[in-house]
Design a protein around this nucleic acid. Structure first.
Lengths: 205, 205
DNA sequence: CAGGTTATGTCAGCCACTGACAAAAGTAAA
DNA sequence: TTTACTTTTGTCAGTGGCTGACATAACCTG
């Protein structure tokens, strides 16, 4: 499962208690600015917290690690992928469905693009960014594996769904990496091309 | 491009200087024992250094990070893969070559098996282990991409070699992950099956 | 024995991250 | 308004990974 993203969780109705001085999104926004300005490793957690007007300890009540601030939106994006896969016509070839649905999660507005590009570079370069990413990658694979297992009427833990979901993930990440060295290209179409190349053809299996 | 693995590098002939009190392999061996005994995160770098009879600072003269001690042998194994790919008959289908050569890098003697299994679990669970792994993964992909580019007479940075090398890596890692939850299976054959499933068929591309 | 070389130990320090606890700032009931 | 309860925040001390600076130990050559 993903991070913790918002530990001080106001559970439903407001029944007293000190109001939160910040929020996960506020911290993520501030961090994003600092990262774009000074760089990831040059920005300390205390810098982020200070810029958000809270103490350093509070940051870790909202995010488990410094890098988790990069993935605050991914659960929502993944939900869109999941819904897209569930809504796809059952007759469609599974590869076509994936090639159609997965890239839609990575369409960015021009202003988002700058941030997405820097984040992709960080994923490649910074070990501290790669480490806490794996739960999100696992979530992605789980969604794809569940979709494939449904189509093939088998267990998601079988080799085929596992292989397909790993391929889909690898294609997506490889497309991102390719995008970093070719920033003028369109990321969603890069992802689609990588998926077409890398998704297993299940005819003879 | 891997780690540093042996910073105090005696460059050729011995022309004086204090003799090394330890070695990268000695540290790796001691660390391996401690990891198997107490666990990775429960073992501090100072523990390893103390068990090897050196100071904690010295450890970091041999390894850039605590986890790098796990990958001390991978450059050699990768060399074997590279040589195997170079020696393969040119007429063979590229997928057959990869399915034949890659798994050979992961045949373990019974005693190595225990260690390899624990290391595979660490790769899945411990973020601190995943982080410094990426240079090694990049090396692996470079070797495969170079091989494919040679076969297809194109640039290793083109989409096809990039996609194939990413698939080969993903298949290898997925096989390891599958192995962890099915330890009785044979790792090399798992890798081969995953490669057969995941390697792109380049007929129509 | 002197001079050059290489590795090591010590020390101070940064930063990510954590547990414990007290204090702040709200709300609801008395 | 006072009291009690709730939730978040700040402070503080501490661990552990990791680094730079510097002195010193140990070896070789002359």
């Amino acid at each position: 499962m993903g991070g913790m993203t918002g530990s001080p969780a106001r559970t439903g109705a407001n029944l007293g208690g000190r109001p939160a001085a910040t929020s996960a999104h506020k911290l993520a926004e501030v961090a994003q600015e600092l990262f774009l300005d000074k760089g990831f490793s040059e920005t300390s957690v205390d810098d982020i917290a200070a810029a958000a007007g809270v103490s350093g300890r509070t940051f870790f009540r909202y995010f488990a690690t410094k890098a988790d601030v990069l993935w605050i939106n991914t659960p929502i994006e993944l939900d869109r992928v999941r819904e897209g896969l569930e809504a796809a016509p059952a007759g469609e070839r599974y590869q076509d469905t994936l090639c159609l649905v997965v890239p839609t999660a990575y369409v960015h507005s021009p202003r988002e693009r700058v941030w997405a590009l820097q984040r992709a570079e960080l994923v490649i370069r910074e070990p501290a960014v790669q480490a806490p990413m794996s739960p999100h990658l696992a979530d992605f694979r789980d969604v794809v594996a569940a979709f494939v297992a449904r189509r093939l009427d088998c267990d998601p833990a079988d080799m085929v769904p596992v292989a397909v979901s790993a391929s889909a993930l690898s294609a997506t990440m490889t497309a991102h990496e390719y995008w970093v060295s070719h920033p003028s290209e369109d990321l969603p179409s890069l992802i689609e091309r990588m998926l077409r190349l890398m998704l297993p053809r299940l005819d003879g299996v």
